[in-house]
Amino acid sequence: MSPDVSVKTLVIDGRDVGATGEQTILEVAREHGIRIPTLCHLEGLMPAGACRMCLVEVVGSNKLLPACVTKVSEGMEVRTHTPELLELRRMTLELLFAERNHICSVCVSNGHCQLQSLAGEHGIDHIRFPYQYPRLQVDTTHPRYGMDPNRCVLCGRCVRVCAEVEGAHTWDLMGRGAGTLVTAELRTPWGLAQTCTSCGKCVQVCPTGALFDKGRAVAEMEKRREFVPAILAGRDEEEELVP
């Protein structure tokens, strides 16, 4: 199958936009400066459609669709910021904050965290659900990096960048449901993982402070994403971190 290069016209938030048939709603929206929040998505990695932050309303569809994987079609009418969507995104974020331990004031990524900036963007000032705080073991066996699963949002970006870009596939998900954990191969301490090349890509794509450079104090961990080609083009960063 050759790629669909036909031109489609569609409406996003009342604006007429043009796209090719192979593009996703998210790509087209970003090209036109329309912001759709994302968390598990990172341009250059396979989309997952897992975090549900980018859900949008498409007129004529009774289900909400994830913008990161939904292809555009002719005449499509997309709404990205209805009151319902804003409330759903807010609740998704609250569920994430309650799921593990996300106390910003003691986090290396304070001020440089995507979860934090999304919370700011959605005006979250309190969480309606009890905190679960599951006391998970921190792994600092790697000489250069550390892994704190208590800060992990299970977006899977580290797993994907390690498998798809670095080709090492040191990380994968273990278990399922709320007990899912990102682990280095065979649950060995990260420092002993045979396939890890210590490239650090996982650290840099991690949206929170779950993966970090050792030796960083609170709020010192800024992530650099420039090795994923699409990000090198300078598009993603300002989209991701809204001040």
């Binding site: 459609g49 975090c51 998704t92 009890p130 679960q132 299970l154």
Partner: peptide, 21 residues
């Protein structure tokens, strides 16, 4: 549902836990 959730998407993974709570 909480036990059988695969854990991929946030609403099902974390939401079923909170509903159960």
């Amino acid at each position: 549902c909480m036990t059988e959730s695969c854990g991929k998407c946030v609403p099902c993974r974390a939401g079923t836990v909170q509903i159960h709570n």
